[in-house]
Design a protein around this nucleic acid. Sequence first.
DNA 1: AGATTTCTCTTCGCCAAGGAAGAGATTAGG
DNA 2: CCTAATCTCTTCCTTGGCGAAGAGAAATCT
Lengths: 153, 153
Amino acid sequence: MSTPAVPSDASEVYRRYLSAVMLHGHASAKACELGATDLYALNILQLTGPMTPGELGTRTGLTTGPTTRLIDRLEQAGYVRRAPDPGDRRKVIVEPIGKPADLDRVMAPARQRIGELLRGYSPEQFEVLFDYFARATDAYQEAAEQLRSHNAG
Amino acid sequence: MSTPAVPSDASEVYRRYLSAVMLHGHASAKACELGATDLYALNILQLTGPMTPGELGTRTGLTTGPTTRLIDRLEQAGYVRRAPDPGDRRKVIVEPIGKPADLDRVMAPARQRIGELLRGYSPEQFEVLFDYFARATDAYQEAAEQLRSHNAG
DNA sequence: AGATTTCTCTTCGCCAAGGAAGAGATTAGG
DNA sequence: CCTAATCTCTTCCTTGGCGAAGAGAAATCT
C-alpha cells in the first residue's frame, strides 16, 4: 500500500482516476469470469441500447461467427437476451437485461463506496458532478467512436 | 445513433458514465493492439508505482510464466522498463515509462474533449470535480483490492 | 410467383495467452 | 563454507477466442 509520490498535478490526478476506474472494471470482469470482448460488448449495449447482432459485430470489430458466440456467452451468463424483431423476422434484437447476474453483485462494493462518497456533497456540488458525468459520457463515447472509425478506415 | 431513452435517474447516468469510460478504454487498448491483461497491468503499475514481477503477478492473478511474457510485451511496446533492484540482485523492478508509446497518441482525442469540458467549469466547480476524482480513485482502488482478495481467498 | 439480397447461425482451422514444472542465479542462515 | 530458501526466467501443453467460408430462413424486387 505504498502511496507513490503524491501527485499534485491535475492531469496526474485525472490519469490516476481513470486508471482506477479501468482497474476496477477489469477486476470486476475477472471476478465474473467475463472476457475482455464480452465486457466490451456489454458496455456498448448498455450505452447504445438494444441492437442486432450485425450492428454489435460491427461495433466490436468482430465478424459474424465470433459475434454469434459472443451473444451466446452473454445470454448464457444472463446478461442479455435475444428477442425477435417484430418488423423483420430475420433479425434478432440483442437487449441487455435489467438485472445482470454476477456483475451487479461484484459491483456492489464499489457502488456502496461511491454512493457514500457522493452523499457527502451538497446538492449544488452534486449537480456539478452529475453535469460532468453526463457530459463526459458523450465526450468519451464520441472519442471512442472516433477511434473506431479511424482504426477501421 | 439512436439515443435510447433519456435516463433521468442519477444511478442510470452514473452507470452510463462508467460504461462510456470503459468503452473508451477498451477502444484505446484495441487501437494500441494491447491485450486486456496488458492494460490491466499497466493500470496497476500506474496506480501503485514500480514493483517486482512477482508482485505484479500476484496483483494480476497470473503465475510467473505469463507474468514474464506480459512484462516482455509491455517492455517491447515501450510502456515499461526493467531495472535492477540495488538491494537485491535477484529482483527486478518493473517501472512504467513516463511517455508511453501509442497510448498517449490514442488518448489524445478524449483528452482534448475532456480538457475542453473541464475548462468550462468555474474554479469552485473545478475544485469539486477534482475532489471527487481523488476520492473516487481511492474508492475504486479499495473496491478492486477487495474483489481481488475475495476472489483469491 | 421466382430470383436476388440480407441476416443470422454453424463448422473448421489457427493463433495468442495462460497454467504447470523445472533450471539458473542470488541471498540468508548454520 | 555449505545448505536451504527466494526470485526470475524458460519450456511444453492446453484452452479459449477469432477469422473465413458455407448453410438456412426471410424479406424485397421484378
